[in-house]
Nucleic acid binder design. Structure first.
Lengths: 407, 407
DNA sequence: ACATTACGGTTAAACAGTTTACCATAGCGG
DNA sequence: CCGCTATGGTAAACTGTTTAACCGTAATGT
């Protein structure tokens, strides 16, 4: 069978024009749509709508959507009263409340939240901001965080928007525009590194923002993060318990704080154990399977006697196993491999992956919670760390050279 | 080493109160936040903000954000003119346009998009609606689609909101509220099945909606979808070319149209080849690794002579390999396994997975594009099918009993 | 008995834009 | 020279809420 780098692709149907067109469009400049066109079309639409919605719920017989004034009229109260009923203002009597609510239910009225937000000072929308890694959303790491955020946001009555921070997005200060144009009340930042200095802009303009699973102490940003240090310690302890001394590290981009934390722990533990250490035992896997495999190649070629590899995330660990498998090392008997993150499918790959579990879903929940607190006015800095733990699976075993009792 | 169903978890740090609290909160009722509280806090905030933003960009010296009237005053024109400049209305002379723009740039004015949307008839937001599968976002299948949607939406000047359709979400008709309260201009539906009849509500109320990678012909919904039928045909052809006759099917929930398409193709191809067929060769894997493994167990126990398994998605295929590996069948020499979807990591697992590639990213792009067209007034039904193709990797080989030339 | 408060609700002014109807000027043909 | 139309811009109405300020009663304190 062909290796993955040399796949044989059977194209039964030739590439359709549809696909070609889609991919061609990719290069188009991001731009507001042509105004003249959209105006014309809009008119057409509204006309058609009138015809369609004949005395539907939420519309008067004339087809116009009903507003708060209409409700007020029908209930025989002022608009202010209706507004207060809507907002559960305690100033309103139970009697009036019921009277108004009856009308609201009957007519199926729903307050226009654009008007609400325009008038009030809130938006009830938060945004998740992340870099434009190709297919970032498809990464279970991000997905898990986002799941947690979405679930909690919904429970707190907030909507969640997704935003990709492309370079031009930042250049045009659209991240600040998010607030200035009243799109959102707060943002959550995921997946950025030390080079993304734009994040400072948020606090400088006093806009609620929380960094998720990362830290930027140099900028004093709020954050919630997993305990990478402890996770790394557990990995090193475990590998050393298994008798491994020649341990390689496939690390993530060092401009990421948490990646540096793992590196630091690794370095310290290596020096205390082997009594010295060399950067040739480390390679950058840039968080992806591909580069993880490459890094592994580099490490194994430099140190054929390596018995274990610690990868700073599961994707790189997968890349490491992939490479090892294809180059005469079976995992774990010849080479132990440990990952980091514990993304879902690592429990189903072959061999299953020993890895550090990060409570990403819970971290998303926590981030959302803290952000909303900030939005509501809480001003204490957010600095929270969630515990991590090692999950033992099949990709690790006793060091080959060790085996004291050969159990 | 322990199997995945019997993991040994090292908990170095005992479960913290933080985590406990987070998980406890999970059961809380979804509710709008207490009004009295939020009001009080809001007042505090606004006071603080005034103090902080001393003559910042976009604010007057008094600390108040500038509006269109202020711009009009400074430029010596009417607000209508400024509005028209903002919207590139051709009625405005180049000279006036420049005059106004200069003021806008100088003062750093950005139009409040809440006011714009309130006044205009659009929102420039679309929503992605999906079921509440636990950790749905962490699934690369959804992630890939969402990636495509987000990228294209941004290019078309639309924001993207994420929405989970919990049962109570539907019961309270919040999916319609999305439109009625003017949250969005359109929605994209992902991951639903025939039991989710609420999707009819959208067309009934004439709200733009497009189903992504699924079909509901019974309700006449717009959709864009991958060619599952062709993909399945390719798989069956390939397996039969390899000499497989005893082929099992681990299918997805049959209330999903595309899942049924695969089942149909499978049934037809099996009857024409083996001249008869039995439902005992099929098992429901419900789209997950766990159930995929279980389904595989059922199939292999019923038919130990099975030489190949066709799984209707990659996750189930992973479950199948997982189970087979642990029960004395090596893949592919004893058992060939084919997946469906071609999610990223299937190229890095062991063995790498032969699977049908779905252009999910492109499908997301297309869906977004078509939805926006509908929003802008186009009224033709959307019914588009994107081609799929088989990707050969390591998880398949000649049927053991076959081997004509024993290559 | 009279000034205070509390209560329940109302009026009208924000909020920040877009759009419609109208208007002055200029150009042009007859 | 008059009426007509095109051009470029304006004033005012409109979008649909919230909220600050105000206002009658009724209950309460002194």
């Amino acid at each position: 069978m062909s290796s993955s780098s040399n796949e044989y692709v059977v194209k039964v149907k030739a590439g359709s024009e549809i696909m070609a067109q889609i991919m061609a469009d990719q290069s188009g400049k991001s731009s507001e749509s042509n105004v003249a066109t959209s105006k014309k079309i809009r008119k057409k639409r509204s006309k058609k709508q009138q015809g369609a919605s004949v005395s539907n719920k939420g519309t008067t017989s004339s087809g116009k959507r009903v507003g708060i004034r209409e409700i007020a009229r029908q209930a025989g109260v002022s608009v202010a009263t209706v507004s207060m009923v809507l907002n559960n203002n305690p100033k309103i009597t139970e009697a009036t409340r019921q009277k108004v609510n009856k009308v609201i239910d009957r007519v199926g009225y729903r307050p226009n939240r654009l008007a609400q937000s325009l008038s009030g000072r809130y938006t009830r929308v938060i945004s998740i901001l992340m870099p434009t890694l190709r297919h970032a959303m498809a990464d279970p790491y991000f997905g898990e965080l986002i799941s947690g955020i979405c679930d909690r946001a919904a429970r707190l009555g907030h909507k969640v928007m997704l935003e990709h921070a492309k370079p031009d997005f930042i250049r045009e200060r659209r991240h600040i525009e998010l607030f200035e144009r009243r799109f959102v009340d707060g943002v959550l930042c995921i997946g950025f590194n030390d080079r993304h200095a734009f994040m400072k802009d948020f606090i400088e303009n006093d806009h609620p923002m929380v960094v998720v699973n990362n830290m930027f102490p140099q900028w004093g940003l709020d954050h919630v993060v997993c305990d990478y240090r402890s996770g790394a310690e557990q990995v090193m302890t475990y590998l050393q318990q298994l008798g491994h001394k020649k341990i390689g590290l496939v690390h993530g981009a060092p401009e990421v704080f948490t990646a540096r934390e793992i590196i630091e722990v690794y370095k310290r533990r290596m020096t205390t154990v082997t009594g010295g250490f060399d950067t040739s035992w480390m390679a950058d896997g840039r968080f992806t399977e591909e580069h993880g495999a490459e890094a592994t190649k580099k490490l194994l070629e430099a140190h054929p006697d390596m018995t274990a590899i610690f990868a700073s995330n599961d994707k790189m660990a997968m890349g490491a196993i992939h490479y090892a498998n294809r180059h005469g090392r079976s995992v774990p008997s010849d080479l132990s491999i440990v990952g980091f993150d514990d993304i879902q499918y690592t429990a189903f790959v072959n061999p299953t992956l020993t890895t550090v579990h990060l409570p990403l879903y819970e971290l998303g929940v926590l981030a959302c919670e803290r952000l909303v607190e900030r939005i509501r006015g809480k001003s204490e800095r957010v600095r929270e760390v969630l515990p991590t733990h090692l999950v033992l699976r099949e990709s690790t075993s006793l060091a080959a050279s060790y085996a004291p009792g050969v159990g």
